[in-house]
Design a protein around this nucleic acid. Structure first.
Length: 488
RNA sequence: GGUCCCAUCGUCUAACGGCUAGGACGCCAGGUUCUCAUCCUGGAAAUCGGGGUUCGAUUCCCCGUGGGAUCACCA
């Protein structure tokens, strides 16, 4: 019971269950808990709530840790380094929960549940039929006997009353007596329930701020009655708003395309962008800025700016934000990023090859905000001009200002002369070589045919960038081929 | 059904009870180098409804309405 003074260090935790999936709502909860701890110079704990062996999925704990690490949420204590705690896995702490359960038994506040599952289900169905909430305590057995460890152990609510409490985000909250019940604290298999275990762990780990979604508001009275019975002081409650699907109506679900966090990694989202984006669902520091890099999120984070109402997961905005972060990458980082999707497509040789590839990376990132969009562009043939021979069909050579394509032939031939004499060390020097002539004949009259000749497409980057990336030899060869085709 | 929570542009949001309700994403239009993209500029777009308190409500209170959560040997 060391929660009494206000000067103590902030301790937060993220306590997922290992079900094999790291959903966005959970990650956002982790992020806020992390941000608060770091902002206050406190401690952030990762605790695994593995008390349901039926739902547990192999490899989940690793998956959770990998997810948090990717986002940069480093925990001070966790499964790998429990520190002074005996373990950050609840399954390792069964003795502890049993000890607390026995305390309650000794006080006459816990008893074994004599009913079968079928009997309970009948009670529940009856309650539903009568349009009233199911309350176990209305069926509380008279002589439950001794707990032998094979039956579920229930908490005997000592006092049925309305509870009121304070939430750091929502303010004053309350709930009626209908939300108080004799909940199961130890299951028949010996594992504690979440309702019981998290209270004990939060207490023993010194957690000061319990941050979780609003779905826990209605069960808070149950927790409060347990805190009281265990004579544990309440932690501070921080209710986070839900993350909604794109329509903003219901909670984000797999139906809405909700993905595992690490899928965003494999889709090419940068962890900094993801973190920035997630922080802004349900929180914002006020003002007009939205991009918060590095430590800025930690510096600006505060509980009083957490939103009460749910926020939709807007993938378009995530894409925009990712693009903002992609822009600031160094040429080396861009190369790593782009080449992970374009191992064979983006290969150049010859003069200035390194710089030309950089230019190609910039070009790709200007047109895409993630891996899928780069892939999509390649599949759509947008980069075929790099490697594929161009078929100069008559349709392709049908540019808008010339009824007769042969009219463009002299302009292209003159461009050829200029290109042969041009400095190919940058798109700008190529532009300088062609620009006066382009202005003379009309920009579109030259640039359109030239661009089509180089890209083989109606829509493409500008001709100077194309020529630069293709290099002198390929540029000249392409223009010649186009001229030949027109001359046929 | 009981209990509880929430409510500003389509979406994320700003606004000590006090300017023409601001910004961002997306959308539309114009411009920058012909097309695509980028970038720049501009535009359309919101306080759920009704009462009350107040000189004055997006803001405070009440009632509706709408949405959500919860009522497990899941967390």
């Amino acid at each position: 019971m060391d929660h009494k003074n206000n000067t103590q260090q902030v301790v937060t935790r993220f306590a997922p269950s290992p079900t094999g999936f790291m959903h966005i709502g959970g990650v956002r909860t982790a992020l806020f808990a992390y941000l608060l701890a770091k902002k206050e110079g406190g401690t952030f704990i990762l605790r695994i709530e593995d008390t349901d062996k039926n739902r547990e999925v192999e490899g989940s704990i690793k998956h959770i840790q990998e997810s948090l690490k990717w986002l940069g949420l480093d925990w001070d204590y966790g499964p790998d380094n429990p520190g002074e705690f005996d373990s950050c896995l609840q399954s390792d702490r069964l003795d502890t929960y049993k000890k607390y359960a026995e305390k309650l038994i000794a006080k006459g506040l816990a008893y074994p549940d004599p009913y079968t599952k079928e009997e309970l289900e009948a009670f529940r169905e009856q309650a539903q039929k009568d349009n009233r909430p199911f309350l176990y305590r209305q069926h509380r057995p008279d002589n439950p006997g001794e707990w032998d460890g094979t039956q579920p152990l229930r908490f005997k609510v000592p006092e049925i009353k309305r509870y009121e409490w304070t939430d750091l985000v929502r303010g004053k909250l309350s709930a009626g007596e209908e939300m108080l019940d004799d909940i199961i604290i130890i299951k028949a298999d010996g594992y504690p329930t979440y309702n019981f275990a998290h209270i004990i762990d939060d207490f023993e780990m010194g957690v000061t701020h319990v941050m979780r979604g609003e779905e826990f508001i209605s069960s808070t009275p149950k927790f409060l009655s347990l805190y009281d019975a265990l004579e544990i002081e309440y932690p501070l409650f921080v209710t986070l708003p839900p993350i909604m699907g794109p329509d903003g109506k219901k909670k984000l679900s797999k139906r809405d395309g909700a993905k595992d966090l690490l899928e965003y990694r494999s889709d090419g989202y940068l962890p900094e962008a993801m973190r920035n984006f997630l922080a802004l669902i349900g929180w914002n520091p006020g003002g007009n800025d939205e991009i918060f890099r590095d430590k800025e999120l930690i510096e600006k984070f505060s509980l009083d700016k957490i939103q009460k109402s749910g926020g939709a997961f807007n993938e378009e905005k995530l894409k925009w934000m990712n693009k903002e972060y992609l822009k600031t990458l160094s040429p080396e980082e861009k190369a790593t990023y782009v080449s992970s999707v374009t191992p064979s497509t983006f290969k150049l040789s010859g003069e200035f090859a390194d710089q030309r590839v950089n230019s190609l990376h910039d070009l790709a990132l200007e047109r895409a905000s993630n891996f899928n969009e780069i892939k999509g562009a390649i599949e759509a043939g947008e980069y075929d001009w790099l490697n594929t021979d161009i078929q100069y069909t008559t349709d392709l050579l049908q540019w808008k200002n010339d009824d007769d394509v042969t009219a463009a032939l002299p302009r292209l031939q003159q461009a050829l002369n200029l290109l042969e004499a041009a400095d190919f060390s940058s798109p700008d020097t190529i532009k300088e070589a062609l620009w006066p002539f382009a202005e003379e004949v009309g920009k579109g009259e030259l640039l359109w045919p030239l661009r089509v000749a180089l890209s083989g497409r109606q829509q493409s980057p500008d001709p100077f960038t194309l020529a630069y990336i293709l290099g002198r030899e390929m540029t000249i060869s392409r223009v010649k081929q186009a001229c030949d085709k027109i001359g046929e």
